[in-house]
């Protein structure tokens, strides 16, 4: 009996903590549907007159910011994740399977890239991108992401590939399969859990990235969603309702994915970091 009471108290306490923690997100959700008078006067209460005006005004901006930047973000994230996966899994496979002093050094050389923050290399990266005429293009940003996140991909894949028995490759090779074919037909499908970790990590980083798209894509050829909301937010600083609507819409895809694939998210992130 006492045990039951204490477990109930525990649950109640957990709920309280969670509610406090959730407060900022609650604010966003609740204030989207209020008119600006009520947002300022009573930010915490439920909407007295439910309105969609905030969302509508953000969606009908004359510059179509939400649509174009959402599309750009999706495109950039998807392509960056793809090229990083293709490239880093191949590099990791080669380096793990050709175990020699040289390849171990090369692996360490790649993993050194994990330590480099973007702020440090952004100035020269801009110079490099100008030189190859990729500045202010999506291609330039994707190429940069590929170079920057390949070390992370290699780090994840190299740990995982070690757990896959060599006999598989050897059997395939005896059957006359080329190394490339062996890798893509036999090994890569086995890397599924690792691949999903990589997708989640790099997908989140790229989608939420702010500084690089702000500087690299620039203002002329569209923008990503994070850089986009940063650019226009000045217009909303006195209109919280619309500002929250903007935040909500910008985060909607990622929140939706997170809630749908919650287990995969948490597994991917923990397995990724615990293995490290």
């Amino acid at each position: 009996m006492l045990l039951k009471w204490s477990s109930k108290a525990h649950a109640l306490f957990t709920v309280c903590v969670t509610v406090v923690f959730f407060l900022p997100l609650y604010l966003v959700l609740i204030n989207i549907f209020k008119d600006s008078k009520q947002v300022m006067g009573d930010p915490l209460g439920f909407p007295t007159s439910f309105t969609l005006a905030n969302i509508r005004s953000v969606l009908t901006r004359p510059d179509h910011l939400i649509y174009t930047s959402m599309w750009n973000s999706t495109l950039i994230t998807a392509l960056s994740v793809c090229v990083v996966i293709v490239s880093s899994s191949m590099v990791a496979y080669y380096l793990v399977r050709n175990d020699s002093k040289k390849s171990r050094l090369l692996l360490v050389f790649f993993l050194f890239g994990l330590m480099v923050p973007t702020t440090i290399i952004l100035i020269p990266v801009v110079k490099v991108l100008i030189a190859v005429h990729l500045m202010s293009t999506k291609t330039g940003l994707i190429a940069f992401y590929m170079g920057y996140y390949v070390p992370f991909g290699i780090f994840m894949y190299s740990g995982f590939i070690r757990t896959i028995p060599r006999e598989l490759d050897e059997a395939a090779a005896i059957d006359g399969s080329s190394p490339l074919r062996t890798f893509w037909r036999i090994i890569f499908p086995l890397l599924g859990p690792c691949t999903s970790s990589v997708i989640i990590f790099i997908g989140l980083w790229v989608w939420n990235d702010f500084l690089n798209p702000l500087i690299i894509i620039g203002p002329i050829k569209g923008t990503t969603i994070t850089a986009g909301i940063y650019r226009v937010i000045g217009q909303y600083s006195v209109n919280w309702g619309e500002m929250f609507a903007m935040m909500f819409l910008a985060s909607l895809p990622i929140i939706f994915l997170y809630l749908a694939l919650q287990r995969k998210f948490v597994e991917g992130i923990t397995s990724g970091s615990l293995k490290g």
Partner: peptide, 12 residues
Amino acid sequence: GLFIYLTFVIMP
């Protein structure tokens, strides 16, 4: 991988 890593991380 090596090329793009050299271009966008090491060279910078």
